[in-house]
Amino acid sequence: MLTKKQLDLLAFIHKRVQRDGVPPSFDEMKLALDLRSKSGIHRLITALEERGFIRRLAHRARAIEVVKLPDSLSGKSGFAPRVIDGDRPDMPPPSAAREVTTAAAIELPVMGRIAAGVPIEAISEVSHSVAVPSGMVAGKGQHYALEVKGDSMIDAGINDGDVVVIRETSVADDGDIVVALVEDAEATLKRFRRQGTSIALEAANPAYETRVLPASHVKVQGRLVGLIRTY
Rank of each mutant, 00 (worst) to 15 (best):
V163K: 09
I106Y: 00
A207G: 01
V220T: 06
S134E: 15
R194V: 04
R167K: 14
G117Q: 09
R98S: 14
G157W: 12
D160W: 12
D90V: 03
S124D: 03
D173E: 13
G150H: 08
D85Q: 00
N205F: 06
R191E: 13
L201P: 08
R113F: 01
V218L: 07
G175K: 05
A207Y: 03
P206F: 12
A80K: 10
I114D: 00
P89N: 13
D90E: 09
E202H: 13
A96T: 15
L181T: 00
R223E: 05
I123F: 10
V100I: 14
S152T: 08
G112V: 00
V126Y: 10
P206V: 04
V164R: 01
Y144H: 15
V220G: 06
A203C: 08
E183T: 06
S134D: 13
H217V: 01
R82W: 04
L189D: 06
V165Y: 12
I114Q: 02
K140R: 11
G141A: 14
G86M: 00
V110K: 00
E202A: 13
L227K: 15
R193S: 10
A97Y: 03
G86W: 02
L181A: 02
Y144F: 15
E168Y: 05
G222T: 01
R223C: 02
V218F: 02
P109V: 07
S95Q: 13
Q195D: 11
R98Y: 13
R88V: 03
G135M: 06
P206E: 13
S134T: 06
G175S: 01
I106R: 11
M136R: 04
D155C: 03
I154M: 06
G157I: 07
G175D: 04
G196Y: 05
G141M: 07
M136V: 09
G161C: 10
I123N: 04
G157A: 10
D160S: 03
A97R: 07
V130A: 08
P119M: 07
P92M: 14
D155G: 02
S198N: 15
A105H: 01
D87S: 13
V83M: 11
A172L: 04
E168T: 07
D160V: 02
Y208D: 06
R211V: 08
A187D: 14
G117S: 11
I228T: 06
S134F: 12
A200S: 14
G135H: 11
G175H: 02
V130W: 07
A104T: 04
E121N: 10
E99Y: 15
V218W: 09
K219I: 10
A156Y: 09
A185D: 10
A122K: 11
S134M: 13
E186T: 15
A103R: 13
D184V: 09
G112E: 05
V130K: 08
G196Q: 01
A116R: 00
L108T: 03
P214M: 02
V225R: 10
Q221M: 12
E209P: 00
Q142E: 15
R194D: 01
G222A: 08
P89C: 06
T210E: 15
D85L: 08
S198V: 01
G86A: 00
K219C: 06
D176I: 04
Q142D: 12
D184L: 12
A156Q: 09
T102Y: 12
